[in-house]
């Protein structure tokens, strides 16, 4: 369902989604970034929301093609703030966000190319003075200037948070997966170009980027005082067979042993 200008005018919640150009993990080609696409998906599932997409960065044809992936999810326009390749985009984004005054900003938790430190949402929130929520899993409701959100924790757990709006939220791989990008809408979508003066990111030029090296494996360190202990440690077989086997037991005894283990591990609620 395309979100037209009419819906934007009388919508309840004004949402801005910050999107970036992703990099395919295998082919290294440009694509829509996975986490940012999840952020767009999250915005599209919000009820009665006016969504605007925002990207700051260089606008060569290859990157525009990648950004069309977001338009193919069912949005009409994408605002493109053109910057040089070595620019620090935070001040430009801050200015643009202040101008638009959205109530909620959604974005992926880290970029797929470049430094990818994941610090941008935090710096932007600090500059704006807004609260920031990480690992957003769902927005439950928006009322009286606050939003009730679910934050994803490890092991599929969720935490409910009440956040005062306007706020910024980042989305990571635990959010619902993004819908497919359709080719036709992606072609028809429009970019709204604006060229802004770039602020060059000075420290970045002093850093050396290289192909990721394989991290060295940590060796097993044996601290033994005697030769006999060292020999025992070196000749020890890999662990295994350390488990307990209950043969010739009634099902009840077996169940009791399993129950004890489940309770010790604290997985029974």
């Amino acid at each position: 369902m395309p979100h037209d200008a009419n819906a934007r005018a009388n919508a309840g919640l004004n949402v801005a989604v910050l999107v970036s150009v992703g990099r395919h993990p295998l082919t290294a080609g440009t694509r829509r970034a996975d986490q940012d696409a999840r952020a767009v998906e999250m915005a599209l599932t919000l009820e009665n929301a006016a969504i605007s997409l925002l990207h700051a960065g260089p606008a060569d044809p290859e990157r525009q093609q990648a950004l069309r992936g977001y338009l193919g999810m069912g949005l009409d326009t994408l605002d493109l703030l053109e910057q040089s390749a070595d620019a620090d985009v935070i001040s430009v984004l801050e200015e643009e966000v202040r101008h638009r005054a959205p109530q909620l900003i959604l974005t992926g938790s880290r970029a797929e190319a470049g430094e990818a430190s994941g610090a941008l949402p935090f710096l932007l929130a600090e500059a704006l003075g807004w609260p920031i929520v990480t690992s957003l899993a769902a927005v439950e409701k928006v009322e009286n200037g606050t939003a009730v959100m679910l934050q994803a924790l490890p092991r599929g757990k969720r935490r409910r948070l009440r956040v005062r709006l306007p706020a910024l939220a980042t989305v990571d791989a635990s959010a619902p997966p993004a819908r497919q990008s359709a080719f036709g809408p992606a072609r028809r979508g429009k970019f709204e170009h604006q060229t802004r003066p770039s602020e060059v990111d000075e420290p970045l030029s002093g850093w050396q980027f290289q192909e990721a090296r394989k991290r060295p494996k940590r060796l097993k360190i044996v601290k033994a005082s005697s030769a006999r202990d060292r020999f025992k440690a070196a000749a020890a077989k890999a662990e295994g067979g350390g488990g307990q086997t209950l043969a010739d037991v009634t099902p009840e005894q077996g169940a009791e042993a399993i129950f004890k283990l489940l309770k010790e591990e604290g997985v029974l609620r």
Binding site: G243, T245, L246, A255, F259, L261
Partner: peptide
């Protein structure tokens, strides 16, 4: 060999006993 605890027995009987417990 991999397991920390192995119960040798019929799966459905052990599961039923576990559910009861």
């Amino acid at each position: 060999k991999r397991a920390d605890l192995t119960v040798i027995g019929d799966a459905s009987a052990v599961l039923a006993a576990l559910v009861a417990r």
